[in-house]
Amino acid sequence: MKNFKQYYPTTVDEAAKILKENPNDTYICAGGTDIIGVMKDFILPTYPTALVSLDRIPGLKEIKEEGGFLTIGAMVPLEDIATNDLIKSKYACLAEAAARTASPHLRESGTIGGNLCQMTRCWYFRHNNDQFHCLRKGGDTCYALTGDARFHSIFGLTKMCAAVNPSDTAPAMVVLDAKVVTNKREFGIEELWGFAVPGSTKLEHDEIITCFKIPAFSGKSCFYKAAIRKTIDFPIVNGACAITASGDVKICVNAVALSPHRCKEAEAVVKGQTITESLAEKAGDEAAKKATVIEGTGTTNEYKIQMMKGIIKKVVLGCK
C-alpha cells in the first residue's frame, strides 16, 4: 500500500468539511474492508490520496426503534444487524442478508453503510494495477463483454458497463423500503445507486450517510443468496421479498445489474394472490422476461437468469 493522508474526524460536519477541501481521490472509510483491498491491489487509476474514517464519530453505530422507524446507523457492523433480536424478529430478510454477507470476520468490521456503498467486484475492474482500464475507470471498453462474464449483468448494460452491484443487504433494504439519511438530505434507498466512477452510488463527494430509516414493518419477508461457496463469497444472485400486513409486495434481486434490481413485474404477479409454488414460479418467469445474456468468450451468464427465477420463487414462497 502507498501512503496517504488519514483523517479521524469526530463529527459528521468535520468529515464533510475534509471531503469538501479534498476534492480529488479522497475516500470515505467505514469498516475499511473494501477500500483496503482496493488500495493493496492498486486497482484505481489514480491512487487514493486521503481517507476520511468515520470510525470515531459518535452516534453512527446505533440501532434503535423510534417514531415509527427502525433506525440503523451507517457504521453499525453487519454482525450486529445479523444478531439483533429486534431485526431478526421483525425485519427477517435484513437480518438474514446481513448474516449471509461475506464472512463472520468481515461482518464484524464491515458496516451496513459500507456494504451498501461498496465498489463492484467485477474482476476486470478489480484486476491489479488498473490493468483493465475499463469504462468504469474512465476508459472506453467493458472487458467483460468480450471476456468471461459469468458473474456479470443480466439486466441492461447501463452505459455499457456489465458490472453488478454485489451487496447482499441491498435487496433487503429495498424491499423494506429503507430511507437513506445523509448530512444533506433524506431519500428512498433505490435512489442511492447509479453509474458512478469508480463507486456505485449517486452520493455527492462530501455527502455522508449517517443512518438508514426503515418504516416499522409487520409483514413477512425473506432473503435468499446463491453463491459458489456457502460463506466468504459474493452472491451470484441474491434476492429479497417483503409482503406487508396490508398486502403490499416488494421484490428485489441483486448481483444482476449495475444497481439492485426491483422486480415490479414479479410484484404484480404476487400482489393480492394466495402464494403457491406455481404463483412463485410465475413471478420469477415474469421477472426474467427482460433479462439479457452476455455470451462473451468464457462461461456465459445465462444461468444467472434461471438462478434469479429460482431465487424469486424461493423468496416469494418464504413470505407465505
Partner: peptide
Amino acid sequence: RPILSCMTFAS
C-alpha cells in the same frame, strides 16, 4: 470481536 488485522488500519 474477531477482526481481520490485514484489513484493519493500525491507526
